[in-house]
């Protein structure tokens, strides 16, 4: 299986994909973090959905990871697209047959792919985090934010927890994409279905029937990334997310193992 991981990483580290992802993630991270600090006095707000966050709040330990957390919500969508396309393209390109001739154990292929994409997601999250933190420090002075609380052990613990939570959420979204890729076998449809579901359908469903929100996969994955919130507990989201991913993953794996590779 380690051989599958090495081979998969060779595909993932190709310049267009790796640099493209790094650029996207870096761009998002820089954009969100900069807005928070540069538009701190703006009437239109500097945080999500027009909310405002002021210098006093940012001067607390949480201020260190505020930008990173905002970006975290988008890293999931990026991971979903990458996991989905990298899995589905093996079918659409016809390359799966080559892989299976060299490694007939389909479960090893699947596990190796999963692990290599975890590594990729980790790189993505760490890069986004590091960039956001750097920008936060760089812009704090201008925005009148006191950074002394950012270097305390509390802040470090918060940073570690946030990184872990964002990584977990990113993996959940990515795994969701991988399941779609395996089932739909076409990168375009897997990405379209995944993004439509997460960004649009869940919002409509959640708006129409308030109570559905806490049972939808995307809401719960995001909630994990935010470390839980008062209306939806972290525990609840762990349970719901795991249920979705384990059931979905098992179905996709059975299909992957049994289905004829005829293209």
């Amino acid at each position: 299986m380690i051989r599958v991981v090495i081979a998969e990483l060779r595909k993932l580290r190709r310049p267009t994909l790796l640099l493209g992802t790094i650029a996207t993630v870096g761009g998002l991270s820089a954009l969100f973090t900069s807005i928070i600090f540069l538009m701190i006095d703006s009437e239109d707000g500097n945080s999500r959905r027009g909310e405002s966050i002021g210098p006093e709040e940012l001067s607390q330990a949480t201020g260190l990871v505020y930008g990173f957390r905002l970006v975290g919500a988008f890293l999931g969508i990026v991971a979903l697209c990458i996991f989905a396309s990298q899995t589905a393209q093996e079918y659409s390109l016809g390359t799966l047959r080559n892989l299976l001739v060299r490694q007939p154990s389909r479960m090893k292929i699947l596990a190796g792919k999963f692990i290599s994409m975890k590594i990729f997601a980790l790189v993505m999250v760490l890069f986004a985090g590091a960039l956001s933190i750097l920008i936060s420090f760089a812009l704090a002075g201008r925005a009148g934010v006191d950074t002394s609380a950012w270097t305390t052990s509390d802040a470090m613990e918060l940073l570690f927890k946030s990184t872990l939570n964002i990584f977990i959420a990113t993996l959940c979204f990515g795994t969701f994409g991988m399941i779609l890729g395996l089932l739909l076998r076409s990168p375009i449809s897997a990405i379209a279905v995944g993004v439509l579901w997460i960004l649009i359908l869940e919002n409509i469903l959640g708006a129409l029937i308030k109570s559905t929100g806490k049972w939808l996969p995307g809401f719960n994955f995001s909630n994990l990334g935010e470390g839980g919130n008062p209306s939806l507990s972290y525990r609840h989201s762990v349970a719901v997310s795991l249920a979705y991913l384990i059931i979905g993953g098992a179905i996709a794996a059975v299909f992957f193992k049994r289905r004829d590779v005829a293209n």
Binding site: R3, V4, I6, A7, R10, R14, N98, L99, R102, Q103
Partner: peptide
């Protein structure tokens, strides 16, 4: 070359 390397790594 990279394509072949992927398969070589996979097959050991």
């Amino acid at each position: 070359r990279e394509n072949l390397k992927v398969l070589a790594e996979l097959g050991g």
